[in-house]
Design a protein around this nucleic acid. Structure first.
Lengths: 210, 210
DNA sequence: CGAACGCTTGAGCAAATTCAAGTGCGGTGG
DNA sequence: CCACCGCACTTGAATTTGCTCAAGCGTTCG
């Protein structure tokens, strides 16, 4: 986050600026909320998160939003069908993102297939969380997932707002906040900062996900 | 469904029987509820639905179930990561399913990548329905999707039980039933049979999905 | 210092679930 | 052929979970 702050003034204001410099694997800086691509955009490349976090989402006509996935450092996103993006992608916080030219080498395309399939499994697993778990279980699953994807340490960051978490889990920000408070009151988690969490009782959290 | 009834006595009782005959593209018969593969199974092939319908799902420890996807005739499923299935697949009704040997020809693998990406888009779109729409909107979205995938005719089949629909949409069977009744009472749909629907006012249904 | 924003907390409310009957249909057996 | 049984579905009433609306808090930034 401090690195992000350093780079922030250089961040592109919008997608046009960002689309320009794509020399293979050099990360481009995006400030929090900056658009990476929009639904309907032509798609000709994949992206890899260098640092920060990306939210991929979809909207209903009245503004309701569902975040389908977060992508964290090292992860690849931006798959499309029929050459068009079907979702929006934005930086969830100040982030560095490298464009990957679509190469047709066997090795690279197999790697991309792997990434796409991993996203598919993740999305379908997430469907179970959103479709069948209650608020407490959803938050627990989210925290466990975030921890595992950041090296499975007891302490880790939440590189997104409560509103993003709500829209990812199909909850309101109020419910997210209440569940965080409840878990903190029970000593299951500690909030070191508003976006920094320590899992005090990982066993309890994991049990909640079943 | 009548064809299904004819074949039903030949259907395999379980996965072992079904796994046997896989000469390229000849469909194997599965009776309603028959398992195609289980979570954790080794995966070495894809499947294409010839007729009927397949449900792909996941379970929580206490038995709660989330159906991640239905696959209808012509559609391909069975993608895996790390050579293992991460979900269960069963016939939702009497069905014919052809195994596809994993071929490494460029053309075939690109086709499979396409199928996998289409599943990914579908799963992420479904996340929006389950995470952010109410019961009425979910059923409407489901009906519109089913109609479109069966040729977009006014009249079409629901090749699965209310319980399957509920577990797909993250609702109870009671809520599914109530919403069907409400739509019928409002003249938006007609129920020709318990599993046969006619969209009387497609515009209303589509508007509900936004 | 004040405004804005993101987050938290509380109270009342609404939507969907749970629990409980009841209905209808297909299949089986008398 | 008809009665009965089982199962899937429907309907109703009470309950609960999470949402809406509203106010308050704390930090950041101008």
């Amino acid at each position: 986050m401090s690195a992000a702050a350093l780079f922030a003034p250089l961040a592109p204001r919008n997608r046009e600026d960002a689309a320009r410099p794509a020399p293979a694997e050099l990360p481009t800086m995006y400030s929090a909320g900056a658009e990476i691509y929009a639904q309907g955009d032509r798609a000709d490349r994949l992206y890899r998160v260098a640092f920060g976090a990306v939210r991929v989402y979809r909207l209903l006509a009245d503004g309701r939003r569902q975040i389908c996935a977060f992508y964290l450092p090292g992860e690849v996103f931006g798959f499309e069908v029929d050459g068009r993006h079907h979702f929006f992608a934005e930086a969830a916080c100040a982030s560095g993102i490298a464009a990957i030219r679509q190469v047709s080498s066997d090795e690279a395309s197999r790697e991309h297939l792997e990434s796409a399939l991993r996203s598919l499994v993740r999305a379908q697993e997430h469907l179970l969380v959103v479709g069948r778990q209650n608020a407490l279980e959803r938050i627990a699953a989210f925290l466990v997932d975030m921890a595992e994807r950041q090296g499975d340490l007891a302490q880790f960051d939440l590189p997104m707002s409560r509103s993003d978490i709500g829209d990812y889990l199909g909850l309101t920000i109020e419910t997210v906040s209440r569940v965080f408070s409840k878990l903190r009151a029970q000593g299951v988690i500690r909030l070191l900062g508003i976006r920094s969490v320590e899992m005090a009782k990982p066993g309890v959290l994991r049990a909640l996900c079943e």
